[in-house]
């Protein structure tokens, strides 16, 4: 139930979408690009989103691309998480996707929407951070490709009128040994206390986290401590936790101290499972 009116547009090409955005923006419509729509609809009901026009990107072929046998893999931003799970081109991403919302909702929630929406956990970003994926972005000045991580500072830095078209993931990286865990306050329901995605490349662990801070992150400092094999594992983990960015979330789902405690446990599990925890 949306308590205000908007116009709905369904462009068939990238150029049509960006031109529509520019025209609607000129008309003062404050347009929004629209993927699965779950967040726009639910936040509209709460009056947390307002727009006079939505531009649905699901009919743009590039946004729906799923090239699972190409190198790099091409993953369209308008693919539903459920579709990604079933095709499973990138197992670590599948594991992250499976922990978002529920199975039916994931038939609608898109990869781009999970990453670009307002809800800040953005857990499908984590596998893309550690795989050092590229992101393809379309906007008023055309199409650009950059390293996803370089453009993500607390959130993806998109200019006005830009939208994510695709992600590209190196094929060999997508099959590396990996680790994924999501811990919630209670069972299988709710937002994360801590979510960790990690993979190991050339003996080095790469790790990204969500639920610790009000944004997901991958940190060079944190990884340097975790990979410092001159020190015992306990010390490495403590140094890594101390190097987390701030602020640490402290809310009804979990206190800051508890989140850090859970994160340390998960880092230990991760090092052990990735064969790096022999001196625990």
């Amino acid at each position: 139930m949306v308590p205000f009116d908007f116009a709905y547009y369904r462009p068939q090409s990238i150029a049509e979408a960006t031109a529509l955005f520019a025209a609607l923006e000129r008309d003062g419509k404050r347009p929004l690009y629209y993927g699965g729509g779950t967040e726009i609809i639910t936040l509209s009901r709460l009056n947390l989103v307002r727009t006079a026009a939505v531009i649905d990107i699901k009919s743009i072929p590039e946004c729906r691309a799923l090239e699972a046998s190409a190198d790099p893999l091409v993953l369209g931003a308008a693919l539903a998480l459920g579709e990604l799970e079933e095709a499973n081109p990138f197992p670590l991403l599948t594991k992250a996707a499976r922990e978002v919302a529920d199975r039916t909702a994931r038939n609608q929630i898109t990869l781009g929407g999970n990453i670009c929406g307002q809800i800040f956990y953005r857990e499908t970003a984590l596998p893309l951070f550690v795989a050092e994926a590229d992101v393809i972005i379309a906007g008023p000045y055309g199409i650009r490709q950059c390293r996803f991580l370089d453009l993500f500072h607390q959130q993806l830095q998109l200019g006005r009128g830009e939208f994510v078209v695709q992600f590209k993931v190196d094929r060999a990286t997508a099959t590396l040994p990996h680790f994924h865990r999501k811990r919630r306050k209670q069972g299988e329901v709710g937002y994360p206390l801590v979510t960790i995605a990690a993979l190991k490349k050339d003996g080095t662990v790469r790790v990204a986290l969500s639920g610790i801070c009000p944004f997901p992150f991958r940190s060079a400092d944190v990884e340097a401590h975790l990979n410092d094999r001159n020190r015992p594992v306990g010390e490495r983990i403590q140094a890594a936790v101390d190097a987390f960015p701030r602020p640490i979330l402290h809310d009804i789902e979990g206190s800051a101290d508890y989140r850090l405690f859970v994160a340390a446990q998960l880092l230990e599990d991760m090092l052990r499972e990735l064969g790096d925890g022999e001196t625990v």
């Binding site: 139930m1 709905y8 699965g36 729509g37 779950t38 609809i41 639910t42 039916t104 909702a105 038939n107 609608q108």
Partner: peptide
Amino acid sequence: PIKSCMML
């Protein structure tokens, strides 16, 4: 299956 409260 789709949750029809969240689809236009």
